[in-house]
């Protein structure tokens, strides 16, 4: 997408330069050709292809059906609280634990104002809106620690509203959920 955008930008600017430096080369192009060619024939196929691809990709990312692992993220000014509906006994913490290599559905809610759940390296974000419950499906391919931030402005503590996501290998994760500390 970036490369395509760069090529298109270069094309437009090259035509513009030509108009000044080599006007005779373009003198034969008629009004209709400029408008139909540049305004319709050039962009329409590109945009259709791009939008189509994006929509198909978007469909695949949707949290449809059930997955094995679920978590709850509750935002408040200015902290995140994570819990696990399948393991009600686990204390609510400020770190989200997930299994690596497995899709996880995270239900995001808010106790006060609008926040947004964002883990840049895991991709995607979703707003935490009071009264609403939004689900995002994430997957960490490798075990490790991922940094998360609040992406929607939520008042004077907004930039401090960071959190950690710890992705564990499946075994460790399961034993953690069974109650043992990692």
């Amino acid at each position: 997408m970036l490369a395509g955008a760069a090529v298109l930008t270069a094309l437009v600017l090259a035509l513009l330069t030509m108009a000044y430096l080599r006007p005779h080369r373009l003198a034969g192009v008629t009004a209709g050709q400029w408008i139909v060619g540049g305004g319709l024939i050039l962009p329409i196929p590109i945009l259709m292809l791009l939008t189509g691809t994006a929509l198909v990709l978007g469909e695949q990312l949707l949290p449809r059906g059930e997955v094995a692992y679920r978590a709850e993220a509750r935002a408040e000014q200015w902290a995140w609280r994570f819990s696990y509906p399948d393991v009600p006994g686990l204390p609510v913490s400020e770190t989200l634990h997930i299994p690596a290599g497995e899709p996880v559905d995270i239900a995001v809610t808010s106790a006060d104002v609008i926040h947004a759940f964002w883990v840049p390296r895991l991709g995607g974000k979703i707003d935490a809106i009071p009264g609403h419950r939004n689900v995002i499906r994430l997957q960490a391919d490798e075990p490790g620690i991922y940094r998360g931030i609040c992406a929607e402005f939520c008042g004077p503590g907004h930039e401090t509203m960071q959190f950690r996501v710890e992705a564990h290998d499946l075994e460790t994760f399961k034993s953690m959920m069974a109650g043992a500390a990692p």
Partner: peptide
């Protein structure tokens, strides 16, 4: 909304090329 947002580029492109064409001719 995504499709409409992409589509809005087309009338914009029409104008851009009308301007370039005006200069070129």
């Amino acid at each position: 909304f995504s499709a409409a947002s992409a589509l809005v580029a087309i009338p914009t492109a029409v104008q851009i090329f009308a301007w370039i064409g005006t200069l070129a001719s």
